[in-house]
Every structure is written in C-alpha cells, then in structure tokens.
C-alpha cells in the first residue's frame, strides 16, 4: 500500500503501523533513526497519533525531524 510521510509517498506492506512507514521514510532520507521512538507523529488532521497506530492505503502522516 502507499501512504504519505511528510507528503512523500512511501510504499509499505499492508497492515503496517506508523512506526514502519516512519522507519522506511527516515532510512530513505538518510536521517538519524536512533531516537525514532521519541518522534511525535501527527495525522492529516493534526492529531497526535502513537507509533503503533495502524495505517491504511492513502493515509498521510507528518513528523518533525
């Protein structure tokens, strides 16, 4: 499935959680993954969501690195 992280498309397995999309995005942009679990993630409406939150096709999340 395809989701968006910081407006960039990320292809990921069906049933992935926020943490998986985030990890793939961060590795792709070659940013630091060491503190990944502390990153604050928001959904497309600006609500905080935790990293175990499930994702579905087309979801869009943002994270401040």
């Amino acid at each position: 499935m395809i989701v968006k992280v910081n407006n960039e498309e990320v292809r990921i397995f069906k049933g992935a959680s926020v943490k998986h999309a985030l990890l793939r995005y961060i590795l792709r942009i070659k940013a630091d993954v060491s503190n990944i679990e502390k990153l604050q993630v928001k959904d497309c409406k600006g609500h905080q969501i935790d990293q175990d939150a499930p994702l579905k096709e087309g979801d869009s999340i943002t994270v401040k690195l």
Partner: peptide, 20 residues
Amino acid sequence: NAYAVTVSDSPREDEGREFG
C-alpha cells in the same frame, strides 16, 4: 519479521501483507 521487511527497502512488486 516486519522490521527486517521494512528496512529492506528494495524494488519489489509485492510489498507484502501483515500475517496477523
């Protein structure tokens, strides 16, 4: 495992599905 699959970012037609 989902971590290994996620970090292995390579071209593939089937990204897979969670087994449950």
